[in-house]
Design a binder for these strands. Structure first.
Lengths: 246, 246
DNA sequence: CTAAGTAAGTTGGACTGTACAACTAACTAT
DNA sequence: ATAGTTAGTTGTACAGTCCAACTTACTTAG
């Protein structure tokens, strides 16, 4: 297998013999970046390059790539760098999702990726040329992805949905100012089911995660109070989930 | 720094030039293995070897080590292998905890570890010679650990405590047969606070995660019903946490 | 100017599950 | 027999959701 062939010569030429003289897996970082656009949850994907020797040429994939031991202090910095490169966003909600490593996931050899997931508001930043938003319908992506990115993305969606049941994560998908019905709609989009208005309001308002601003949103009917995220607020964990379906 | 010096020559000597011709981080797997012993939560630690060039000689550390690209199919298999080597246990509760990677965590160079956490019953398996159980008091370990293992362990404890609030994880710490008060005691040990007896019983019994066996535990007072884990049961998630402290 | 329409936000009763505390049950030891 | 201990149950209070009806504040059509 490719992994072993490549591996054999890695790690030679060290000062001290023995200790570190064995093949090393490839190390990458991938990021599942979510936003809400057109009333749907969407994920950012890039098209893989077509060059000679490239695995999965022209396939869609999560943004990511090799850890650069010269540039990247640590894994989170590497993920933040990739996010910045693709979206221009610098301070998103960024959480580690897990890691996937095996002999077979990359044809170039034994490789391990550290996966992150990020939530950003729609209007944030400017997309890089090779990146595009893809909608998820029913918590699924139509397109097939390179490597095991399909599996990673599924896990990310599952984790997001799961946490939305009992945390304030959707707040990180909102623009700077938003109304409570806006926020409820985002919860409903991610969970793909309707929520109770009154229970939702009590819960969110008593969580001390958002604060009213002076303005109201005016429209063709009753104006709605605008809110913003409470500054520097960590995500809030509720002690109960929204009542689960069925 | 050592990492760069070492890194410079890694990845040379490949068949194809260019593409994979850059330094690779070290890749390791570490496992935080928990059990309940003497009415306390305990974690398994090993003493690092004392050889020349070994980092943190004779320090305590989580069991773990380099991924072996020849032996290990994937990361979970690598974690399971290390668990087996240290405890003899083959089918524990094993969950990925996260990954830690940076230029500085290992003096030998840029390295990334994939951390797992495992729950095993006390009587399971035979410990390897270099491994010992260490009690945690108040969710803390007294001893200092090698690398960033202190941080990893803290995260593992936090994750365990957090999940115990709303899942059936402690069931994996139990022996084959146990009583409901036994199980409650384990929940209380991990959470470090008392729980309501009646609410606890209703919750556990209605979760369909354990089933009564024919026997009772007899003692100096009223006998207690013995239960066992429902076969092949995934962990159960409750829709409410136990009511949080304060 | 009024009436109809719509979305924001509130209110109240039914229901579910925990908190707390008192209770009964089953055994041992003296 | 009686006291002691732990297993297990019961009942009332309370918190928060569920569900549905309600009020409020605005726009638009006639």
């Amino acid at each position: 297998m490719a992994g072993e062939a490549l591996g054999k010569d890695l790690g030679k030429g060290l000062g001290k013999p023995g200790q570190l003289d064995f093949p090393r897996p490839l190390t990458t970082v991938d990021v599942a970046i979510f936003t809400i656009r057109d009333d749907r949850l969407q994920v950012l994907l890039v098209r893989r390059p077509a060059g000679e020797g490239e695995p999965f040429p022209e396939s869609l994939a999560l943004p990511g790539g090799f850890v650069d031991v010269a540039k990247d202090r640590d894994l989170a910095a590497c993920a933040a760098r990739k996010l910045k490169e693709k979206t221009g966003v610098t301070s998103p909600y960024l959480e580690q999702l897990g890691s996937w490593g095996s002999a077979t996931r990359d044809p170039r050899g034994w490789s391990a990726t550290h996966a992150y997931f990020a939530l950003i508001p729609e209007e944030a930043g400017e997309l890089s040329a090779d990146a595009r938003w893809f909608p998820l319908s029913g918590g699924r992506l139509k397109e097939k992805l390179a490597f095991d990115h399909g599996e990673i993305l599924s896990t990310a969606i599952q984790r997001l949905r799961n946490k939305v049941e009992y945390t304030s994560l959707p707040a990180y998908l909102m623009p700077a100012e938003f109304t409570l019905p806006d926020l409820q709609r985002v919860y409903e989009i991610v969970l793909d089911r309707p929520l109770e208005k009154s229970a939702f309001r009590t819960r969110i308002l008593s969580a001390d995660m958002i604060e009213p601003v002076a303005r109201m949103r005016r429209g063709p009917n009753r104006p709605a109070q605008l809110y913003r995220l409470t500054k520097g607020r960590e995500p809030v964990y509720f002690v109960r989930t929204f009542n689960p379906p069925e």
